[in-house]
Nucleic acid binder design. Structure first.
Length: 574
RNA sequence: GAUCCAGUAGCUCAGUAGGUAGAGCACAUCCCUUUUAAGGAUGGGGUCCUGGGUUCGAAUCCCAGCUGGAUCACCA
């Protein structure tokens, strides 16, 4: 047993586990446990007059235990909440045998254990709706103590606040922190709300490849993986746009997908390497129609979640009431910088950037320069939902040229709180134009732009067969979830955000120590001193110091062992 | 990638011009017939993130590193 690395409480729980087994109780039974109520139902629907819930059966985690002699109170937590349990010794006494209460309940059940209880609902003298437990069964033993978080009148005490703890061990966060589940429940409601709208219009939810031979549909660095049988590299998708448009070619007139995308880029408060995007493509529509539809969708989501159009985000209130403000990109730049860039070439744009102290580099083409100006000088000011329309053609290789101005595209983004939330086009369906745009991307790529798009010849071939005119829109689900749940960090709306791997050092088994000539009695001591692996011992530079430390430990803890000789210790290290 | 902040008991956190490491909850033992973030008493529990350095002495000061957070940069 590697007990030296377990805490006292963990050891005690393992002992309780063994004791239960000795008493013939399986701490991990296989049989189902039927439930006929949950905590929320009881709190909402029980009344003493009705005398309902007199034969309830429910299950959950034991979250507190207060023992008062022959009676005890405890709390049971299920998915919906918590309820107080009342246990009385006499209810569990058979003849003279009080062990069910005194041993099993009082000593061997711990906070965190899953139990099932049967009994009747009543209200205590203190006015607390409770279950008088007549029967209980252990459903799953917990051998690792949960942090104790308490709550009184909405004030939470000792919540687990350490971000690393919460993200790495989300299961603990969800278990102990009140309200931790709410964010994720809202996230799912939000997705359901969107899905409802799309389905009500007859659009088809589809699935397209995540492993793609050519990562298309966006400008981003992909993750690369390898398929052994085909012996080719594949990319994790950065977008699903090109596949959904292929489906329009194939005759579907409205398709959408909630898609996990992957981008091999930096991580911060608003970026996780994998994230969720909803993309939708509707035939015979244009971006003006899509703007209205986007408004409808977002307003519906906000209403479904909050019952009103405005939401609190940090210290701001954001109102999603239709219609949203609309500006063209060049108009926005003119408004926020006073500069009209509509007629400018690359060189002039570079000078504007210089004047506005915006960093540029040689690889940036016209599109990226304009985007830099917009991102730096306009985006941060756009807190309330604002559509930015008509992007320069250079930065939108999959988007149809503007019906009145060939230098622009029929594209809009929805900016909320200074961040892009949606991106939509009147889709480019001219195969000749599309190929030229891809070739322009190739030139950018050769110039050093590592995010320029690859040429997808199959996609061009699909367009050659003919694609109906269409409009498409993508929306960042994580960012929308952040807005809808008032979270400042993407990690708080993802169950399991990406983290650096946890370094887990496992101790070497005793045999490895004995093989190195270390005598039994010193192994545990070495491990307690932190030398949990042989490699650590071998890496000691001064064997004399280790020898002294060992002797010191022996003396300090009054172990009375015969100290090893300096030479012995030297041999361990060699 | 840069800068700043943090890392002390299972959890939340104190702490000291460098001199034996603290509280609450949790845990253990005992007492207690219904308590309400918690009934009472007693007690156990710590490589003070890691490794170096300064020092008679480092959890505390210095340097380096690890992990996390924040800000910025990068980023449709």
């Amino acid at each position: 047993m590697a007990n030296f690395e377990l805490s006292e409480q963990e050891i005690l729980r393992r002992e309780a586990l063994e004791e239960l087994r000795r008493m013939g109780i399986n701490p991990y039974p296989a049989e189902r446990f039927d439930v006929n109520a949950n905590t929320a139902q009881i709190h909402n629907e029980y009344s003493a007059e009705k005398n309902n819930f007199q034969e309830v059966s429910l299950a959950g985690r034991l979250m507190s235990k207060r023992i008062m002699g022959s009676a005890s109170f405890a709390e049971l937590q299920d998915e919906k909440g918590r309820i107080q349990l009342y246990f009385k010794r006499d209810d569990f006494t058979v003849g003279e045998d009080t062990s069910r209460y005194n041993i099993i309940f009082k000593k061997l059940l711990d906070i965190g254990d899953f139990i099932g209880v049967k009994g009747f609902v009543f209200i205590t003298q203190m006015g607390e709706t409770s279950i008088h437990v007549k029967d209980f069964v252990l459903l799953g033993k917990s051998v690792k103590p949960l942090p104790i978080v308490k709550e009184k009148d909405g004030t939470v005490y000792d919540a687990v606040t350490d971000a690393e703890f919460r993200y790495r061990q989300r299961y603990v966060d969800l278990t102990v922190n009140p309200g931790a589940k709410d964010i994720f429940i809202k996230r799912t409601k939000m997705i359901n709300s969107m899905r409802e709208l799309f389905n009500s219009k007859g659009y088809l939810e589809v699935e397209t490849p995540i492993l793609q031979p050519i990562p298309g549909g966006a400008a981003a660095r992909p993750f690369i993986t390898h398929h052994n049988t085909l012996d080719i590299n594949l990319y994790l998708r950065i977008a699903n746009e090109l596949y959904l448009k292929r489906l329009l070619v194939g005759g579907f007139e409205g398709v959408y997908e909630f898609a996990k995308d992957f981008r091999n880029e930096g991580m911060d408060r608003t970026h996780n390497p994998e994230f969720t995007v909803m993309e939708i493509y509707i035939a015979y529509k244009d971006y003006l129609w899509m703007m209205d539809f986007t408004e409808e969708m977002i307003e519906k989501v906000v209403l479904d979640l909050h019952g009103k159009t405005s939401v609190q985000f940090s210290e701001k209130v954001i109102d999603f009431k239709r219609p949203f403000k609309r500006m063209t990109m060049l108009g926005a730049i003119k408004e926020f910088t006073g500069i009209d860039i509509s007629e400018m070439d690359e060189q002039q744009l570079r000078e504007v950037c210089k004047k506005l102290t915006i960093e540029t580099d040689e690889t940036m083409g016209k599109g990226k320069l304009i985007d830099a100006i917009f991102g730096d000088k306009c985006e941060p000011h756009l807190v309330q939902p604002t559509f930015i329309m008509d992007y320069p053609v250079e930065m939108s290789p999959l988007c149809k040229k503007h019906r009145h101005n060939p230098l622009l595209t029929e594209r809009f983004e929805l900016i909320v709180n200074g961040k892009e939330l949606c991106n939509a086009y009147t889709e480019l369906n001219d195969p000749i134009d599309q190929l030229e745009r891809f070739q322009e991307q190739l030139r950018l790529s050769e110039k050093g732009d590592d995010e320029a798009m690859f040429i997808d010849y199959d996609f061009v071939r699909a367009l050659e067969y003919g694609m109906p005119p269409a409009s498409g829109m993508g929306i960042g689900i994580d960012r929308l979830a952040m807005l809808m749940t008032n979270q400042q960090s993407i990690q708080d709306v993802l169950f399991f955000p990406q983290m650096k791997p946890e370094k887990k050092e496992t101790a070497d088994p005793k045999e490895k120590y004995t093989e190195a000539g270390i005598s039994e009695e010193w192994i545990e001591i070495l491990q307690k001193m932190g030398y949990t692996t042989l490699r650590k011992i071998k890496s000691v530079e001064k064997h004399g110091k280790l020898h002294q430390d060992l002797c010191g430990y022996n003396k300090k803890n009054k172990l009375g062992l015969n100290n090893p000789s300096v030479d012995d210790v030297k041999k361990w290290i060699e």
